[in-house]
């Protein structure tokens, strides 16, 4: 594949730095304290840091880059999907399960579609609404899952 179309990264160097962060947090957090409660996280933090160091050294020495993902899709599709996932969490309790799901599930299906026409929008949001309703009822009634109904409904005095 054409080089410019792919995001290429030194995964050893970046990976070492990224996972090293967790090791550092773990080591700082587990320093001191009762021996038998903290020894295990401390050992693991040290292993992470050691491996991170090895990866960083290798990354710097070898300077190898790898194809990671197609550039265009990464910014146009993957990032919005990730943002949507985070948005879901924040809307979940406020708008409630059904509305959030309809909006974001439908939105994701629409965004990923090859042809984005208004007919298509009607279809995907319709599908999303039906799916949301289905899971709301089935999980709510059979598994007794207490879905959030949304704070806006509660503000109106309708939610639970």
């Amino acid at each position: 594949m054409d080089d410019r179309r792919m995001i290429r990264l030194n995964t050893d160097l970046l990976g070492g730095l990224f996972i090293g962060l967790f090791g550092a947090v773990g080591l700082v957090g587990s320093w001191g304290g009762r021996f038998n409660a903290w020894i295990f996280p401390r050992v693991n933090s040290i292993v992470i840091l050691a491996m991170a160091l090895a990866l960083i050294v290798r990354g710097v020495v070898r300077r190898e880059v790898e194809d990671v993902m197609p550039r265009e899709n990464a910014t146009r599709l993957v990032l919005p999907m990730m943002a949507g996932l985070v948005a879901y969490y924040f809307l979940f309790t406020r708008l409630g399960f059904v509305l959030t799901t309809t909006l974001l599930f439908g939105g994701a299906m629409f965004m990923l579609s090859t042809r984005r026409t208004w007919q298509r929008a009607v279809v995907v949001f319709g599908v999303a609404a039906v799916v949301a309703g289905f899971f709301y009822v089935v999980f709510g009634e059979v598994f007794y899952v207490p879905w959030p109904t949304g704070t806006w409904l509660e503000a109106l005095g309708l939610g639970r």
Partner: peptide, 18 residues
């Protein structure tokens, strides 16, 4: 089921507000 409950709660809410 749920629908009926919501309606009933709505009724009480209005009543309570009144």
């Amino acid at each position: 089921m749920t629908g009926r409950m919501v309606t009933r709660r709505a009724f009480w809410a209005v009543l309570a507000a009144l």
